[in-house]
Design a protein around this nucleic acid. Sequence first.
DNA 1: CCAATAGTGTCTATGAGACAATATCTG
DNA 2: CAGATATTGTCTCATAGACACTATTGG
Lengths: 286, 286
Amino acid sequence: MADGTQAGGGAAEEAAFLASYDPRDYEPVAVTVDVVALTIRLVENPAGEAVPTLHVLLVRRGQAPFAGRWALPGGFIRTTVGPDGARVEEDLGAAAVRELAEETGLAASPDRRAADRRLDRIHLEQLGTYGTPGRDPRMRVISVAYLAFAPDLPDPTAGGDAASAAWLPVTSVDRDGMAFDHARILADGLERASSKLEYTPLATAFVAAEFTVTELRAVYETVWGQPLHAPNFHRKVLSAPGFVEDTGATTASGGARGGRRARLYRAGPARLLHPALLRPGKEDPR
Amino acid sequence: MADGTQAGGGAAEEAAFLASYDPRDYEPVAVTVDVVALTIRLVENPAGEAVPTLHVLLVRRGQAPFAGRWALPGGFIRTTVGPDGARVEEDLGAAAVRELAEETGLAASPDRRAADRRLDRIHLEQLGTYGTPGRDPRMRVISVAYLAFAPDLPDPTAGGDAASAAWLPVTSVDRDGMAFDHARILADGLERASSKLEYTPLATAFVAAEFTVTELRAVYETVWGQPLHAPNFHRKVLSAPGFVEDTGATTASGGARGGRRARLYRAGPARLLHPALLRPGKEDPR
DNA sequence: CCAATAGTGTCTATGAGACAATATCTG
DNA sequence: CAGATATTGTCTCATAGACACTATTGG
């Protein structure tokens, strides 16, 4: 990288640095950070039951190109000017958190402490970088995509300036109508999420700090889109060391229509699951 | 991404696009592509035996910053001017291939067809993007890192202009002395490579088009840094559908010191291994 | 023939998946 | 008590890992 031909050293030598390149070798590139933010929310089905459903945070674009289309929340990486006048550059992950906070309304929350606590519980990881020429019709744009797993977050409309943002059920997103190559990024994010549930304990990032095994199973069923065998799931979760820790407590009451009280667990210290919880029905996975 | 405020449309509206942003929101960013290129080469140990050893392609920097240090091969993404005068931007993956070809000498090879054939056999995948402020002391640089698995490639010195490049055994690389954050990128690449061998058939990218099970096992042992149980490995490879295909042929002769002739296989069509070949000794993988 | 290398048989422990059964709630 | 929900028992099959063994070759 940065295999320059100029001498290094000072700070504001940027111009000299740029001038030392053939214009055909160096071109202005815009770098954005986009976020595939996933959460699970309850949706009423026709029968009136609350069904856990995977949602993605999307923003409706106000300007061309792709005006009126849904896009992933994102924006350019920023440079802020510090108190001493020095430029403070923004880390990529920080930009992703900022975008998420802005679009969910957590940035404008009156209770900063509570908002920060919610942001802290969000799992964030880099998904990939998308830089195919022409993906933005205006200029060369390189987008670093992040994947976020969050417990139920507030509705964006509660935020204020992000009236055009919304949590949409992933199954009802019109992928062909999405802006830029965001359909592809979303697809990559969903696949990554499914895969991550298999060998990491990240499903706990979708539920509250204390949760039941059934709630955890709902996460898997929702993301994988298929029902799981409850007894076996139960045992597998408890047998994976460090996946969950027993709190000793149980839910205050059983199910609405009766049923035993469920034990409450919290996320354990493990960062990888062993053995893994593999998706069923992958007999011949080319 | 690209949540712009200007109207979209034409082609050379780049200046207007840039002007529409607050300078604090938009800053010139350089984007580079770096490559962690891995291959397996034979190295003589003190006993005079040829030991397969994992190597990484590194370049010794000629200029500051980090002059004299080893760095990953890489460089800025380019824009070439096409015959009609239009600017042709380079895709990120193409930039990675170009860097690899340049530094290995394959770009300058007299036999273009043969060189292209070798480049085609290289597996290339995106590793991650590194953009921490300050990682390049000169200016803001975002590096998109790629991971390449290659069969034995020519020595860079055979190429010509890349006299300062070399394949180095990964165990003998002075990580603390590497330029920029390339030690971190290298570490990430090695971990990714180890992990990919588990659940994909990419080990075949390290060997010739036709290979024996023992050669394939050597890849695993080299990358994972531990010996494997030969009989069980044999069975696992053959039982994973689509991993390898029998060519019907065998090696021309047995081992140098005697031994049965080995059957020759070629890479099969599978893109994922099922069941996976897990690394041994990961009892408590936090 | 002997040592070396390739490949097969087989046994045990463990996990995956299916099904049955038990425990404990709510109404 | 009846139905609902959580949790545990048990059985079968597949895979991982260990070890013994057979097959084939060079010297």
